[in-house]
């Protein structure tokens, strides 16, 4: 497929936003059960939610560049019964709204206690909003992943690994950003976030390498024989029917060499996994903000490369019909 930058930015940016929100609420949940020191609402959770919103808005903004007719975008919320894209269009703003409310509740210190857990733990409005946000964050990961995983003839994508990797890579980048953010805003939390970031990053690395290995063994199901219905072992296209390009020659192929593809693969394996892991480990537990920030920046660029490769690697069977310009 041809990687579109709008979609690359959309999926990576909202991944960061979702991951950061999950990190914030994980910390709050730990604090709720007294496993972590309580944080001051104004400074930490409110600012963190605002930061997550910045990334989510950036992703939403990027997504509009993918549409030919952005002014009709509202229509895309109508087919949620069948279309994962439509579901994403609904869940994304719902999630953004919840993150905004969560940040506001913390910022304005609006914390009416709604229930009390058996151990005397007070469940206030922020906990309810946070739980709802967590569910929506995972729902959004599911929608984003399924947009690709549900296309059965794009076999590189048609696997549960696609969804799993969207969760893990988004989570890893969000927790890395949380580490950097904590180093600035709440140094006592850097160990907590850094530890989780490393774990999720490791899992993400395993998931991504697993999908690379799986895809390497894929053999195409369609061939020219079934594409035109002629049973002969030797068929070549002499002309695709036109000399110039068309949508079909532009949209479904990355137009780069093998070498370029291979170098992007190494680039993202190093940039999205190895380097950020080393940087996180080097800065682990330290109060120094530089290293986690560097880890996040390197990782984000690595993830851009990862997403480019994710698209470029998928082979669309329609390319069988467009092989010879003559």
């Amino acid at each position: 497929m041809h990687p579109a930058f709008s979609v690359i930015f959309l999926t990576t940016l909202i991944g960061v936003g979702q991951g950061l929100f999950l990190a914030l609420f994980t910390a709050q949940s730990y604090a709720l059960f007294d496993l972590l020191p309580q944080q001051d609402g104004h400074g930490f959770y409110a600012a963190g939610s605002a930061l997550a919103l910045v990334f989510l808005c950036g992703g939403l903004f990027a997504s509009f560049f993918h549409l030919g007719r952005p002014e009709r975008a509202w229509r895309s919320a109508t087919q949620w019964r069948t279309s994962w894209l439509s579901r994403e269009v609904i869940v994304l703003p719902a999630f953004m709204g919840t993150v905004a409310l969560y940040g506001l509740a913390h910022g304005l210190d609006w914390k009416p206690v709604l229930a009390t857990l058996p151990g005397g733990i007070a469940v206030d409005a922020t906990v309810v909003l946070g739980t709802l946000g967590t569910l929506l964050a995972f729902a959004l990961f599911l929608c984003t992943g399924m947009i690709y995983a549900c296309l059965r003839f794009l076999r590189e994508w048609h696997t549960p690994l696609t969804v799993i990797n969207y969760v893990l890579l988004g989570g890893a980048s969000g927790f890395t950003l949380a580490t950097a953010f904590a180093a600035v805003a709440a140094p006592e939390l850097t160990r907590f976030f850094g530890g989780w970031a490393l774990i999720i990053l490791l899992l993400g690395g395993v998931g991504r390498v697993a999908s690379l290995l799986r895809n390497r063994r894929l053999r195409p199901l369609s061939a020219l024989q079934s594409a035109i219905g002629i049973k002969h072992p030797h068929i070549v296209q002499t002309t695709q029917g036109f000399m110039g390009g068309s949508f079909n020659t532009r949209e479904f192929f990355h137009r780069r060499g093998r070498l370029f593809l291979r170098s992007i693969r190494w680039l993202f394996l190093v940039g999205a996994f190895l380097l950020p892991a080393l940087l996180l480990a080097a800065g682990f537990g330290g109060a120094e903000a530089g290293l986690p920030i560097a880890a996040f920046v390197v990782q984000y660029f690595g993830l851009l490369a990862e997403r480019w490769f994710f698209f470029a690697q998928a082979h669309h069977p329609q390319n069988l019909y467009y092989q010879s310009v003559a």
Partner: peptide
């Protein structure tokens, strides 16, 4: 009149017969 030009349907057609109109953006 409803198409937003997201091109998702063209990804879902294995035969490569849907073509995006660059002028009308649908």
């Amino acid at each position: 009149d409803k198409c937003i030009g997201c091109k998702y349907c063209s990804w879902a057609c294995p035969y490569g017969v849907r073509e995006f109109d660059e002028a009308q953006k649908i």
